[in-house]
Write a protein that binds this DNA or RNA. Sequence first.
RNA 1: GGCCCCGUCGUCUAGUGGCCUAGGACGCAGCCCUCUCAAGGCUGAGAUCGCGGGUUCGAAUCCCGCCGGGGCUACCA
Length: 458
Amino acid sequence: MAVSVRVRIAPSPTGFAHLGTASTALYNVLFSRQNQGTFVLRIDDTDMERNRPEYEALIYDSLRWLDLGWDEGPDHGGPFAPYRQSERLDIYKEEAARLLKDEKAYRCYCTPEELEAERREAQMQKRPYKYSRRCLTTPPPGRTVFAVRFKVPGGEVTFTDMVRGHMKFDADLIGDFIIVKSDGYPTYQFASPVDDARMKMTHVIRGEEHLSNTPYQLMLIDALGYERPTAYAHMPLILAADGAKLSKRKHPESNLMLFKEQGYLPEALINYLALLGWNPGTEQEIFTFDELVRTFSFDRVQHAGARFDWEKLNWINGEYIRKLDDDELASRLQPFVPNLDPAIIKRAVPPLKTRMHKLAQAVDYLDYLWTDPPPPALDSATAERVRAAINVLKDVAWEPEPIEAALEKAVSESGVGKGKFYTPLRDVLTGKKVSLPIHYAFALLPKEKALSRLEQAA
RNA sequence: GGCCCCGUCGUCUAGUGGCCUAGGACGCAGCCCUCUCAAGGCUGAGAUCGCGGGUUCGAAUCCCGCCGGGGCUACCA
């Protein structure tokens, strides 16, 4: 029997949950589903300085919002618990001790300043920098603070990448790197492969920024005597408009919660993310999740980074909004217009549906319902027409169709065109130049309120 | 600096030697529809396939060089 697929994402809680995490999670879930595998969420919180528990909660919330659920994770455990690296410190200690005992690692007493000096020296001599191995050969006496360095065996490291094929790295170019920091915490470069191996990951699917890290991690897995994952997949990076990697620091717009707040539909974001860096080879652009599971494959993944295009996301989101049935759209709209009665939202949906790229735009169309616009100053001829509108509206049933019919009658009697007739009405009613079609704008507002706005202006 | 990855319309991409006068989508422009804004329909502009050399009857597709972008090279992850 084949070993069942196990994949993971390993975000670190050092800030808001970010787009790249969602993208990586998506590909992991897709691959896991295709193989009836297990999707693991591991929290890589070994950065004492930057980790915060509330950031971990943000990761959960964002992933759940996107419906990218995990089978094993810190919140509900699993056979390889714990899933938070800060709770696995004993494991890393034990593994580091093994390496030390086998002389595959050694203590390094160098200070950051000394290392910095080494690096500068190398740079001045225009020589590629590698740690000098001073502490391997001649450790400075009398020091107690140390980090642990891995003694890089060198040679050639090869592995299979599901998107790029066979990869080959020259490990002679890699210097001895630190696996345990002087505060006793493991580095990412150490904890990650240890956990991948011990948690029996069969495939590691992650962003391309980790491609060059892979030989480091493979050497460690080998040195520890663990079995290597059967394959890696390094996904193209999501780039910002300037072509640089989307980062938390430089690109606050990559915050997943912001997408939710603006009213992007999770399924639309998923669809867009799937298409960023991958394509099915057909002209299909809109996919259900199941279709993605069926058609996704690593051999059609792009090798180059892809810029995040808000315009295209907006289009896809609009497509999804238009496809929602009215009740569903109404309930998704509710959080964006919390002070509106659900019945009113339902009535607003049909005219609203084709006018939004994101749900938050509903506010622009509907806020006149709870905010009185300032009554505009009208010239006498215009005021006359507003009065004509009041006249026909007064006795009409307060529904879009009868309102429209009444208004059309008033227009034809007024001697001016619809545009000239409706524009001031829109202004009086909503205070805006753009609104829903005028009969809807009227019908959504209580009749007395609508007429009183008209009367005040006339 | 060293190593690695990458380079087709503004953007995401199709393309694996002849089907390419390079296809699609978003965006953009025009027209139609129309009370505004959308949605929808139609039409259109937009890429000498980063550059230069080869190989070949024939190259976006293969080879070499260069240039450009990105990533890694941390006691960040």
